Computed example of a mutant assay.
Amino acid sequence: MTERLRVGVIGAGAIAQVAHLPTLRRMKDVEVAVVCDSDLPKARAVANRFKINDAFDDIDDVLRYEELDALVISTPNHLHESHAISALSAGLHVLVEKPLATSTKGVNHVIRQAKKSDRILMVGTNQRYRPDVETVRGFVESGELGKVDSVRGSWHVFRPSRLQLGWRLRQELAGGGAMLDLGLAVLDIGLWLAGNPVPTRVSAVLNRMSERSVEHSGSAFVVCENGASIFLDVTWNHIGDGERFGAGVRGSKGTASINPFVVWKQMHGAPVNVSPTTSWGRETPYQASFRAEWAHFLAAIRGQAKAPPLEDQVTLHQVLDAIYQSAEENRDIKL
């Protein structure tokens, strides 16, 4: 592996243009060598904008002609599994946007290939890397909030048009609606902040415009083996002031919230605001999350850090399967 890592970008959509490419452009030890998209004019336009040498419309051409160390995969959901397996089989490290696959079976398939190829595989759980989320996680890990009893998370956005959602409205391409698109990230944060307890029971409600459409909103309640609970609520149809993303942790000795960021502890028999007086700088938490995620991925490739356990992805998708089953059958689902 060369000292300066050569990276390819598969999928030239919004997440690549808004998050990955601007982040990589600021990293001196990374060279983005190629961008690939099924829409070749788009791939060429993005390559020109970010000063990338090559553009292709087929991942097989990327793997055939480019000498790379890693790929980031940000294609539509139904392609994640096959693209990740192709890249891993070619000996490349892979950072793939969530979901890793559109089924638990597919998730296990990709993980087996990563282990067989002995390559780093990371899933884009960038919300974990937000500075406010990482700070709250630190309070949890130190035991300052006591035993975590519950985590509540929500992500509400306003995407009313078919143009804004595009392929996400098609079950065969997306694998699910708002619960997969937004809820998977909220569920991941909930379990991570709670210390990764084992989920045992799920109850959910999903809202659809019609029987044939994917869900535009939904809520789920997850009970864990240690008594902790995770509640999540998501929607593509938020009627309000801007996008809303946040989470709250309730522990036996304190509470914490994300967006707004506040931490309270019980001290000398009274609640005390112990929120750190930190500044996130000129970056938004969203921008900072992608920079930190890429730093972790690159450190894992170089053997300087461990990648997040891939078993986390299996658990997430097992819970997600139970959410859809619960909503479909109108009953609690035991895991």
Rank of each mutant, 00 (worst) to 15 (best):
E3N: 12
V7C: 05
A12H: 08
G13T: 06
G13I: 08
I15P: 03
I15L: 13
H20I: 05
L21K: 01
P22Y: 04
T23I: 02
R26C: 07
M27F: 09
V30D: 08
C36V: 07
S38A: 15
V46Y: 06
V46F: 06
N48V: 06
N48I: 00
K51Q: 14
V62L: 10
R64V: 06
E67I: 03
L68R: 09
D69Q: 03
D69H: 04
I73Y: 03
I73P: 01
T75L: 02
H78A: 13
H80D: 10
I85Q: 02
A87V: 00
L95N: 11
A101Y: 02
T102L: 11
K105Q: 14
V107F: 00
K116G: 07
S117F: 01
S117E: 12
D118L: 08
R119L: 09
G124E: 04
G124N: 11
D132Q: 14
T135G: 07
V136D: 04
V140S: 04
V140K: 02
E144W: 12
L145R: 12
G146F: 08
K147N: 10
V148A: 10
D149P: 03
G153M: 12
S154K: 15
H156I: 07
R159V: 12
Q164M: 11
R168N: 11
Q171T: 03
E172D: 15
G175S: 06
G175R: 08
A178D: 01
L180I: 14
L184V: 00
V186W: 03
V186D: 07
D188V: 05
L191E: 03
A194M: 02
G195P: 03
N196R: 13
P197I: 05
P197C: 09
R201W: 06
V202M: 09
A204D: 11
S213A: 15
E215A: 10
G218K: 03
G218D: 10
S219C: 12
A220R: 04
F221H: 15
N226I: 10
S229A: 14
I230L: 04
L232H: 05
T235S: 15
W236G: 13
W236H: 15
I239H: 13
R244A: 12
R244Q: 13
G246L: 08
V249G: 08
G254A: 07
A256P: 00
I258A: 00
P260L: 09
P260C: 11
F261D: 08
V262W: 09
V262I: 15
V263D: 03
H268P: 00
N273Q: 11
V274I: 10
S275K: 00
S279N: 06
R282C: 09
Y286D: 14
S289V: 01
W294C: 02
W294N: 05
H296A: 02
H296C: 01
A299F: 02
R302K: 05
K306C: 07
K306I: 00
P308M: 07
L310Y: 04
D312P: 02
V314I: 15
V314M: 01
T315L: 09
L320M: 15
D321L: 01
E328N: 12
E329A: 11
E329F: 10
I333F: 12
L335P: 07
